[in-house]
Design a protein around this nucleic acid. Sequence first.
DNA 1: GTTTTGTAGATTGTATACAATATTCATTTA
DNA 2: TAAATGAATATTGTATACAATCTACAAAAC
Lengths: 223, 223
Amino acid sequence: MDAQVLSKRTMAEQVADLLRQRILSGALPAGTPIRQEPLAAELGISRIPLREALKQLEAEGFVTIASHKGATVAPLSVAEIEELFQLRLRLETWMLGLALPRLAEADFAALDQLIAEQRAPDSLPRWGELNWRFHEVMYRPADRPLTLKMLKRIHDNIDRYLRLEISLSAGRNRAYREHEDLLAHCRKGDVAVALDLLERHIQQTANSLIDHLRARETAVAAD
Amino acid sequence: MDAQVLSKRTMAEQVADLLRQRILSGALPAGTPIRQEPLAAELGISRIPLREALKQLEAEGFVTIASHKGATVAPLSVAEIEELFQLRLRLETWMLGLALPRLAEADFAALDQLIAEQRAPDSLPRWGELNWRFHEVMYRPADRPLTLKMLKRIHDNIDRYLRLEISLSAGRNRAYREHEDLLAHCRKGDVAVALDLLERHIQQTANSLIDHLRARETAVAAD
DNA sequence: GTTTTGTAGATTGTATACAATATTCATTTA
DNA sequence: TAAATGAATATTGTATACAATCTACAAAAC
């Protein structure tokens, strides 16, 4: 039996999950104001649990709350996105270095499976989730749960911007190839090469996203 | 005029600050259950803003909330404290490397001032704050605001345990000497030595705290 | 015409009241 | 005696109602 399913979840928790999904999926893009009364009415609840959900999402970096003014979907500046990628670089190379010697055959099999799922034709809406799970499986043996939680938060915040760019499929195919390459070298236990590939993978992702965002920025400014 | 002072702060914010202070000062030690009704009554408010404050503190890592069971001051395991120190090591050496070439004379003066304050006889209750400000001034020129915020959170969570050990004054004096040493080499612009000293400073702090905690743990277990 | 002021409406913040869940402890049963 | 049951109590979760604050726009002052 799954305890999560059985345990009565609170309204605030369910609402937080729902809104998080809407933000990650792009249904609520950055900057969207969140009015409490209409949203609570739509969800059929009062504003109290909604406010608690918003506080939770604020802590996760998805929402900005200004006293007496309300909540909006948090925008990330290009500088902040760059910083998040730099954090990923530092933390993930550390984690992979710790985890690599402890990766077992079951982990490699799971990673193969995830790459296959990512390549499936209808996987696009689950791209962010599958991408994170790939990285998570690699880092979990490092046995650093707080760091892993931090990394998930960083990934999620990046992903809602990456989504725009990854739908173009060119970057997506590159990411899959890099995952395969990285996995192959992890299997061989080639630590130095694996860390180098991971570093480049993160760098590449950062560069293509930031180029894309800068292009959009100037396009918007030219309007 | 200071906008912060003028802006009307919400009850939830004030309560969060108050509780955070009580937790950091040790007035509310780890594991203490937080009952909403009595606490709200003591503060002269309703449970609604108190609940929002608790949600905020949960996000900051100071409080654990279990549905329908209530909130407690979050305990940190020795393993989690070790992980937090390892995160500090990675993030702070990175930050100092970025910041060092950009540290100006005004920064060095501020750091001198902070060491002097730390050495003042009545500074013990402000130890955590002064210690963080010393590190913060060093890292701020790195211009990585998200990382800086993350580090503050880590420092605060460590500090409420460090407080127990630092009151013994032996470790405190060691910390001050290490700060002075580190500052001297930063002034000289000696990057390699400064990074090495910072690394050792964090390691030393971690070791003495963890030894202390392990000793207490076995002492308690022997009860 | 521009800026300032003031008021009405919209929106958030919080108190109160009630519902849902968990805990405690006396009672029963094996 | 020990485990199981269940009602009484305590505690948290949420709806409703009201207070405080902000926003937008019209009127007044310069």
